[in-house]
């Protein structure tokens, strides 16, 4: 069971969280024209690689905040967690 640092609440076990997928996928702005490719990249296409992965978790049974987590998909090591409004630095 992963041990995730919620930036609001501190270290908590994974069973307090729900997963939310790739955090680097950006929703196109509302009302903006987007190509099929851009839209499909947002809705369907994922990189999902081995290694470092920025992803979303929601502290569902806690503060209910969505957070960003940088985790290694092969080892599950967690490097960093950010609040929803913090930008992922490349």
């Amino acid at each position: 069971m992963l041990y995730i640092k919620c930036p609001h609440c501190g270290m908590r076990s994974q069973n307090e969280f729900s997963y939310g997928g790739d955090a680097t996928v950006k929703r196109p702005e509302l009302g903006k024209e987007v190509s099929d490719q851009e839209w499909d990249d947002f809705v369907y296409n994922r990189k999902s690689l081995r290694g470092k992965h920025w992803e979303l978790w929601q502290h569902l049974f806690g503060c209910r905040q969505w957070i960003k987590v940088e985790r290694d998909t092969a080892t599950h090591e967690i490097f960093k967690t950010l609040k929803a409004n913090q930008e992922i630095s490349k």
């Binding site: 979303l56 929601q58 569902l60 209910r64 969505w66 929803a84």
Partner: peptide, 11 residues
Amino acid sequence: LSHLEYYLQLV
């Protein structure tokens, strides 16, 4: 609820 929170907090 999670859906609303997702858009409010992240998008």
